[in-house]
Design a protein around this nucleic acid. Sequence first.
DNA 1: TGCCAGGCCGGGT
DNA 2: ACCCGGCATGGC
Length: 208
Amino acid sequence: MTIEFTYHKLYSRFGPQHWWPGDTSFEIIVGAILTQNTNWGNVARAIANLKQAKVLTPKKLYSLPVSKLAALIRPSGYYNIKAKRLRSFLGHLFNNYNGSLKKMFNRPAAELREEILNVKGIGPETADSILLYAGGFPVFVVDAYTKRIFSRHKFFSEKAGYHEVQKIFTDNLKKDARLFNEYHALIVRLGKDFCKKTNPRCDICPLK
DNA sequence: TGCCAGGCCGGGT
DNA sequence: ACCCGGCATGGC
């Protein structure tokens, strides 16, 4: 069993996942921050609130007082800290790129990654999700499901760190954004269905 | 009905 | 370089 073969196995089992569930690169970035340790259903509610309030653009969101922003994203949980995190990203975007995502993404992925990792509230997974799903860069996203599933299947230790896990995937796959996109989405799909922290359905796991 | 979900930060060792 | 408590809603 290899990393690459596992991808094909998941794809034939579940089919294309059509990620990221968002229409614009900005919506994807907002979703990436809001989904931190949070069920996507709650994030979808928060994003629906932002759309209904017609503030889902960088300029409009940044012009919103943090208290109003927090109220709109309340369903996503951790709403006070996430409101600050959205604002810290927006501050970076306006201070460095005049609020233009196009400008922000018009630079080398490695440099941009280091840069946004310095934004308070953007960690490795959020940064990589932004680069891959909003920027289209071939960067592999590692999340809790990735670690749990692949350590259980003995690809690496359960104590392996983010970058160690990421390297294993990137070293064993063609460097292709489309592939990385689909693979991560399939891993999340597998995780939700079969590899929850409690009640894992390891007996009928498609990878077994 | 407690426990968890597509993490991250700040403070401590 | 890790480890831990805190952050919070909605679903099962």
